[in-house]
Design a protein around this nucleic acid. Structure first.
Length: 572
RNA sequence: GUCCCCGUGGCGCAAUGGACAGCGCACCUGGCUUCGAACCAGGGGGUUGUGAGUUCGAGUCUCACCGGGGACUCCA
């Protein structure tokens, strides 16, 4: 579990919105303009062009209609009422009605010691205000090794969890183990068949079984561990026992594989426990009471007005042949959401699901409504699928045929850093081509190393400084940081809090990769323009100031890399 | 058939409803006798799939259409 943050700042964008709010209120109270409603959300954007300052607000344009005045004129009045603060040097009015804010370069330079002191907590914001958020992700069926698709899930979920923690949420990471239902039985039957074959028994392989090689491997382990014990007992009992044993073994592998990708879970939650605890039955009774359950075609269905004529199968012995009459996969989602929100009291339950599950979203939401659970506390992050490319060719994957690339193979071949970075370079909404050849390539064509290179380059500069006898911990004078490249670098560092807020609000971890790349780029520009380590005596103070800046930049780069679950190397 | 995602320079992608739509790859030119060239600087290249609508303002929102991918009781 990630605990509450000790350090947080308010993003500059919000601070400027607050200045505008105060200014607009002042306009009201002084009667400088006719009365109007102050917008609840005051839009402030980072300026895209230098000529427009650092931040810009179009708020006055929205007021033009109500006030029946030209936006430019309104902006001119409002600008007069913006309170003076140390961090804003200039408020300008620009046609057709923008208010442009320019940060004080002196103030910007003086933030460097603050950033340095904050260290790895720089960027934290108090968005979550200690609310408890659970991120449930991966949750792949434990009937086989984790594949490349789950890698995207793992990286998105884990990074989102880190981002939410940085945004002030108390975060838990959870893996939902599908250890109930007919899958377990088919899996157990598959192991049993291979196991029996190894012992010379002619047991046919189940139709719905898992023919992959790892099942035979499991059977060999079972033979070594249990001998012929499972041939001598009741077959159903044996299949069940081998199924659960197999799942436990697969999960051990899953845990190891994910650890290689630097993904760790606080909780491994058993689907089976939802039935064993009786919660499923309690939920069914509750739904029945509300009239949300219907029976027909020999099956039990969940119905809700939101789903129109689309009823959801809950339990059937006819529609899906199952001797144990088990509830369906979807049925488990109902007690599970209750468990998350009501029993465990998470303020937010975040589901990271592949696009192949998007159809289940309205069903779970409808179930939440039927149970009286606030739907807004369930957040669904649906990401598009991954295709793996090797030699420009798509590598087809199919668990049933047993042909797939496992996460383990991928990590062994590529390493965790390129996987994590590449999985985060796109929005979750677009399908991702994972190019194996590019990922393993250690060259400037591989974008992964661009950011890490900036970090090591700083490390190199600092090593050089120590060689020259510099004291890295000695304070530098921020007032000496006046070069445009120095100030551009600091401005980008100052933007981290709003990047984290943006990523957390939008459940959009890809902002981190873009930010990291921009930050690295600005460091490289600084490096080009500003010599850091100078041995000339008259440069001593400037060297000290730039060392301070370089160290701060290194911290911020490391912070972002760590949020993405990547290494921040001293050497490459 | 119903639903979801995508359509932006040659290719791959960004852009919290705001100003002249950015970045990487590829291509062309230039930069290491001083801190790491896995780097930097400059250049060419765009009617944001089409058509309407909402808005002071649309790549972004709505509708229709076209094209690609996916889901619809195994799958991340």
């Amino acid at each position: 579990m990630t605990h509450r943050q000790a350090f947080a700042t308010v993003p500059l964008r919000e601070q400027i919105a607050e200045l505008l709010r105060v200014g607009l209120q002042d306009v009201q109270t002084t009667g400088a303009l006719p009365p109007f409603d102050i917008p609840k959300i005051i839009a402030v954007d980072q300026s895209r062009h230098e000529a427009h300052g650092d931040y810009a607000s179009p708020v006055c344009m929205g007021l033009a209609k109500v006030l029946r005045r030209a936006p430019l004129q309104i902006a001119q009045v409002v600008a007069q009422h913006i309170p003076a603060v140390d961090f804003v040097a200039l408020v300008e009015v620009a046609p057709p009605g923008y208010l442009n804010f320019t940060l004080s370069t002196d103030w910007v330079a003086h933030q460097v010691p603050t950033i340095l002191e904050a260290g790895e907590s720089w960027g934290n914001v108090a968005l979550g205000s200690g609310q408890r958020a659970q991120v449930e992700f991966v949750s792949a069926n434990p009937t086989g090794p984790i594949t490349i698709g789950s890698a995207r899930n793992a990286v998105i979920g884990d990074t989102l969890a880190s981002v939410l923690a940085a945004a002030g949420y108390t975060v838990e990471r959870e893996y939902y183990v599908n250890d109930a239902g007919s899958k377990v039985r088919n899996f157990g039957a598959s192991i049993f068949a291979r196991y029996a074959n190894l012992l010379g028994e002619d047991v046919p392989f189940p139709e719905q079984g898992y023919p992959a090689a790892y099942v035979t491997e499991l059977a060999k382990h079972a033979q070594a561990e249990f001998g012929d014990r499972y041939l001598t007992q009741d077959r159903d009992t044996a299949i069940r026992a081998l199924g659960l044993w197999g799942i436990a073994r697969i999960l051990d592998g899953v845990r190891d594989d994910l650890a290689q990708l630097r993904v760790h879970f606080d909780t491994w939650f058993s689907e089976k426990s939802l039935y064993e605890s009786g919660l499923f039955d309690v939920m069914m009774a509750k739904l029945r009471e509300g009239g949300y359950v219907v029976e027909y075609d020999g099956a039990t269905w969940f119905r809700h007005p939101d789903l129109e004529k689309d009823a959801v199968l809950i339990r059937s012995s006819q529609v899906i042949p199952d001797p144990e009459d088990r509830p369906t996969y979807l049925a488990s989602d109902i007690p599970y959401l209750w468990n998350k929100i009501v029993e465990r009291g998470f303020d937010k339950a975040i589901y990271v699901w592949g696009a192949d599950h998007h159809g289940d979203v309205p069903r779970v939401q409808a179930a939440a409504k039927a149970l009286g659970v606030d739907v807004d506390r369930l957040v669904f992050v649906i990401y598009q699928m991954v295709t793996l490319l090797r030699g420009g060719q798509e590598v087809r994957m199919s668990k049933s045929s047993g042909e797939f690339v496992t996460l383990r193979e991928l990590v062994d071949e590529v390493g965790p850093d390129p996987i994590r970075f590449m999985m985060l370079t796109r929005t979750v909404d677009v399908t991702l081509d994972f190019d194996l050849d590019l990922a393993v390539e250690q060259s400037d064509r591989n974008p992964v190393y661009y950011v890490q290179y900036a970090h090591t380059r700083i490390a190199g500069v600092l090593r050089k400084a120590v060689e020259e006898g510099c004291d890295l911990d000695a304070p530098g004078d921020p007032a000496l940081l006046t070069h445009p490249s120095e100030l551009a670098l600091v401005r980008k560092m100052l933007a981290l809090p709003e990047v984290i807020a943006l990523a957390a609000n939008g459940m959009a971890p890809h902002y981190l990769t873009f930010y990291a790349t921009e930050l690295a780029s600005l460091f490289h520009a600084f490096y080009r323009d500003c010599r850091v380590v100078s041995t000339a005596p008259e440069d001593a103070a400037l060297t000290q100031a730039r060392l301070m800046l370089a160290r701060a930049a290194q911290h911020v780069l490391a912070r972002v890399l760590h949020l993405m679950g990547m290494d921040a190397p001293e050497r490459m």
